[in-house]
């Protein structure tokens, strides 16, 4: 499912950091596990195309999205990944409904406030956020924001779902309910999923394959 080997050297003033991550699996539920500052998010950004490694290759299923030797480097727009950012990155100037519809059109105009798209209505219902459709992100809770971010990503039908510490900002009850929602969604949609965490419970729930990263280096 996912096969990658990437290397990148970071130099900031007198601090140097070397990222060297090698990972290969056919499982579709993958966890990136490691302490903070280890390079987990960098690895995720490299998969999404938001960061370009110095050297290496990344294959998602049968698609090569990066291969520095063959000068292949698909843009984030071409990679068809779904990225769930740690603090959700919802667009503050758009309503929940507009946020979810955002990726459906790629032109110069944002979706209209009143516009009703069957896909958007479907995800609003399915994730239980229909009552919030006309609210702005500033006025909804963290758990609700996460559902909106999830709907915004899933509506674009990505080939892989990348989740950066999806439960870190939630309290314990919310965390277990979100974990269950994600678990069911993954099985229903059969979408491959890579999840960053440092919570052992996530590891047991989603870690069919585990990528351990420590100080920028991957371990088996």
């Amino acid at each position: 499912m996912l096969e990658m080997h990437i290397q990148k050297q970071f130099q900031h003033k007198d601090r140097a950091f070397r990222l060297d991550v090698r990972f290969q699996t056919s499982q579709s539920r993958m966890v990136v596990f490691g302490p903070s500052g280890a390079g987990k998010s960098l690895t995720m950004r490299a998969i999404a195309g938001l960061m370009t490694p110095d050297e290496g290759h990344i294959r998602l299923g049968d698609r090569t999205v990066l291969d520095t030797q063959r000068s292949i480097n698909l843009s984030p727009q071409q990679r068809r990944t779904g990225y769930l950012f740690q603090d959700y990155a919802l667009f503050p100037h758009l309503t929940v409904r507009q946020n979810i519809a955002f990726g459906l059109q790629h032109g110069w105009r944002n979706p209209r406030k009143q516009a009703q798209h069957p896909g958007v209505e479907h995800w609003l219902q399915r994730l239980g956020i229909a009552a919030l459709a006309d609210q702005y992100p500033a006025s909804i809770s963290g758990g609700q924001k996460q559902r909106v971010a999830l709907a915004r990503t899933l509506i674009t039908e990505p080939d892989i779902l990348l989740l950066d510490e999806p439960f870190a900002a939630l309290d314990t009850t919310l965390r277990s309910s979100m974990r269950q929602i994600l678990d069911e969604l993954q099985q229903q949609l059969a979408i491959p999923m890579l999840l960053i965490t440092h919570d052992p419970e996530d590891l047991s729930a989603f870690g069919d394959a585990v990528l351990h990263i420590h100080e920028g280096q991957s371990h088996d």
Binding site: A48, L50, S75, Q77, D87, A89, H106, R152, T156
Partner: peptide, 14 residues
């Protein structure tokens, strides 16, 4: 926030 622009890139916008 540059992350909002990243989010838009991953969602397919030029």
């Amino acid at each position: 926030d540059p992350q909002l622009e990243d989010a838009a890139r991953v969602l397919g916008l030029g």
